[in-house]
Nucleic acid binder design. Structure first.
Lengths: 198, 198
DNA sequence: TAAAAAATATACTAATTAGTGTAGTTAGAT
DNA sequence: ATCTAACTACACTAATTAGTATATTTTTTA
């Protein structure tokens, strides 16, 4: 078994346990046990539990975001269609067997100190996803794509929270319905006009 | 000092520490120390750490939700105005000194087991808030007030997450802008029509 | 004012935790 | 083939944790 495979096995075991139990609630021994790898080897690859968490989050970010983008793009080539497809992929995520909310949001909740390195990784991941949504909105030629994409992100994050609260994936469709209205609004006119009319 | 005052002091100390450090990260000794009350007395009022967490969350829910509703209603009597004022109050919350995300979302993140009693309390609180938003939408005489209020909740929850991620309260205004579009859409026509036009 | 309840001070247990130490084994690279 | 780095097995430390025990003092209440 190669060296990097042990590392990945540890990260994989850690991610599964973090998703199921949270970060503080998972002991290092539980991770090494689950991976079938001794704790000594774990500490050979990661100098501390925190470093393992950081590595796991970075690994997850890359895999998850790439899967996400690939899934979106496999649904349609149409830019607006892709913006909406985002919500279908999100719904599939909510329905996936081991869904337990966003790992990054959970990590930020458990490590609330502003300077915590874990928060930096979470922020970076969220910014990359935000950037992807924005690029879709730009390609769709929508007015104020920056603002629109920020609003769509709010719907996605809100749905992620509420999917946990309600233990239901229905809010993904609700978010999509709201997204349609927001996108339509960005298709027809600069949003300032819409604001003034109210 | 009355008995119930000790209880409330313990709950207050617990809430402050939970907000600043999370739930697992806060030891029972830290709570009793902060409250200036012995651990023995703490265990006289709460039979376990979990019971203290439950009591603290229930207490917080009542106080927070009442403050929230009062604040909204002090802004305007106009029903649509109140729906929008929600986002101003949310923004004030984001700007408050000790803001560190939603205590309930944090609790659900740290206690992911579906059957955890802590999750029940969090769900109940969220449902009560949801009900309040829905009642505002109904009073405003908007079409499909149920759907609309669910969508507004997504914006609020999303903004709460992103306020933490971005360490900025700006997303409250972004959520409000989106809410205006959604509300306008509900003022003018049943949302089905809007959906079909896309 | 006297009994009962609540609170303090402090020390304790038993379990769990992150991380290390030692000594021996396996496996890949040259 | 052999050398090196990774890995195992397992015992260990020192700190921290939730919760309890004992004995005393304060406060409430009847």
């Amino acid at each position: 078994m190669t060296q990097s495979s042990k590392r990945e096995q540890l990260i994989q075991a850690a991610l599964e346990l973090f998703a199921r139990k949270g970060y503080h609630a998972v002991a290092v021994d539980a991770i090494s046990d689950r991976a079938g790898i001794t704790k000594k080897t774990l500490y050979h690859h990661f100098k501390s539990k925190e470093e393992l968490i950081l590595a796991a989050l970075r690994h997850y970010d890359e895999r998850f975001r790439n899967d996400f983008m690939r899934s979106v793009e496999s649904k349609t080539g149409d830019p607006i269609g892709r913006l909406l497809a985002v919500f279908d992929i999100v719904e599939e995520w909510f329905n996936s067997k081991n869904f337990s909310g966003c790992l990054f949001v959970g990590a930020m909740g458990e490590y609330p100190e502003e300077a915590a390195p874990i928060r930096r990784v979470c922020r970076e991941s969220k910014m990359l996803t935000q950037g992807y949504i924005k690029s879709l909105a730009e390609k769709a030629g929508l007015y104020e794509s920056g603002q629109l994409s920020e609003q769509l992100i709010l719907l996605i994050e809100g749905a992620t929270t509420m999917a946990q609260v309600n233990n239901s994936s229905l809010c993904a469709a609700q978010a999509k319905a709201a997204a349609k209205v927001l996108i339509k609004n960005s298709t027809t006119l600069p949003s300032k006009v819409a604001k003034r009319k109210l």
